[in-house]
Design a binder for these strands. Structure first.
Lengths: 279, 279
DNA sequence: GGATTTCCATTCCTTCAGGTTATCACCAAC
DNA sequence: GTTGGTGATAACCTGAAGGAATGGAAATCC
């Protein structure tokens, strides 16, 4: 089923006059005659009866006309949609986000959706490490992740969380027996700050006896409350502080940034618009 | 948007290998390469990135793939549907029916629909005269009408109604003052029978003083009940006989047939199937 | 590390589908 | 009869689409 033939037929059915239809199609009349004959041959039945004054649709022609119009409309819509996809006004954007970006992602995504209602946004909830993996293999175009991100990825910092120490009663925040930190896979950016803290302590002649990991911040705080040690947590965690735990600034400034990450070489105008909107 | 290019792209996106895709399309690899490049040029953006081991979709390519598949599916469906239209298994059938065929049309249409579920049937309620007009100009393919029908139309008798006289108390059914008949435009076949009745009466030396027309049978019967005269009605009208009216056979056999009518030269396999089913 | 394989791009050539011009055939209206 | 309008046909031309052969770069294999 060639679009060209359908278009010829639909225009001809509109004016029921080969000459006029041909000029509307920017063709000559014999060319149109041929196209219609080809279409009729392919279908195996006549679409029009040629009278002396113009042509008239056959019953089959009338039935077929509706279907042809339908398909043509969809073909044109696809053309238009493709153009908009190229310009970055339509398409699909797969965006990852995690617990760390719960305050961040929704508002930005909502803003983007307001500007680009035709863009289908696929939101996928996963850890920063998973997001990085999927950004690298292309399953994700954008991710709200803990910064920094590794080499081929680019990023835009959006939110800076100060890191603080949470300690239970009776624990010396400056020399805690154990340092409690979030598991490595939950936040790639944390490692550097942990090292900076340990270096800072080492400079003061102190080395904690152990570094423990936990999978989420609630667990870290619970361990701190039990007097196990000092938990290195983002300052925003004060909202979920259990009783008997207090917040202490470490001796050195430690930060944990959350931001948007992407793979620059996997360019997509849609993605670039999203980034531009956040800048 | 050429179907050919979309098909090439979709197949290529399926196997992500130019050689394999080309052979599936019954093409050589350079031809496919060219088609994809043409498509990319038209769209204005690359659909795939060519790696050393096969190709991979770009983000845009993946977005576009879904849309392309959609359109291709519809194009193929149109092909299939067109084939079935030609074979008379799909399409649209405009059928007229009137009050006179209320007992007739629904059951036949239901039977046809059972045999051909993909046929869209447009039912149009109108008088026999209107049906004839629309059959002649092609707006109707079939009509359940009073017979006989005029010259270029063909017909199939389906139901024979005996015509009887309905008279009120105190009216002589053999010499009624007035003959009450249905309006001419409501039943073309009635005129001949009316004439036969008048001839029959004339042969017996009787001529009614007037012939009155009414638009529907209820009115005719009401007039008869009022003693105006004798109403010539189909025998099936006994079901709606008002009190004080009795049925009398006229001295001669008068019939009124209902049947299916169509315009033979406006052939349509669908229509022919409908007719064949009733034969 | 060179030979081989794999896979896509390029080049060149052929073919034929699709277009144009010119003309014909037919009917209707004047 | 003539003229005008309409679609069909014929002859020809162009260029788009496909095929064969080749190129070239990465991966693979001894």
């Amino acid at each position: 089923m060639e679009i060209r033939l359908l278009r010829a037929f639909v225009v001809l059915a509109d004016c029921l006059h080969y000459g006029q239809a041909a000029s509307r199609l920017c063709l000559t009349q014999p060319a149109l005659t041929k196209q219609i004959r080809v279409l009729e041959d392919r279908l195996g039945a006549p679409l029009l009866v040629r009278g002396r004054h113009g042509a008239a649709l056959t019953g089959f022609g009338a039935d077929f006309l509706g279907e042809a119009r339908e398909l043509l409309g969809r073909a044109d819509a696809l053309d238009e949609r493709a153009r908009r996809m190229v310009r970055g006004e339509a398409g699909r954007l797969a965006i990852g986000f995690g617990l760390s970006s719960l305050q961040l992602a929704p508002q930005h995504i909502a803003a983007f959706r307001r500007h680009h209602p035709d863009v289908e946004i696929g939101l996928e909830d996963m850890s920063s490490a998973e997001q990085v993996e999927r950004l690298l293999d292309g399953r994700l175009q954008l991710g709200f992740v803990r910064l920094p991100v590794v080499a081929p990825l680019a990023s835009l910092p959006l939110l800076t969380d100060r890191l603080v120490l949470a300690v239970g009663d009776g624990v010396d925040p400056l020399r805690p027996p154990t340092l409690l930190r979030l598991a490595r896979h939950r936040g790639p950016g944390l490692a550097g700050e942990v090292d900076r803290l340990l270096d800072h302590w080492a400079g003061q002649g102190y080395v904690p006896s152990a570094v423990h990991e936990a999978g989420d911040i609630q667990t870290l705080l619970a361990l701190a409350a039990a007097g196990i040690g000092a938990a290195l947590v983002p300052e925003s965690a004060v909202r979920i502080l259990p009783p008997g735990v207090r917040i202490v600034r470490p001796g050195t400034d430690l930060v944990w940034q959350t931001g948007l990450a992407w793979l620059p070489q996997a360019g997509s105008p849609l993605r670039d618009r999203f980034i531009a909107l956040l800048r």
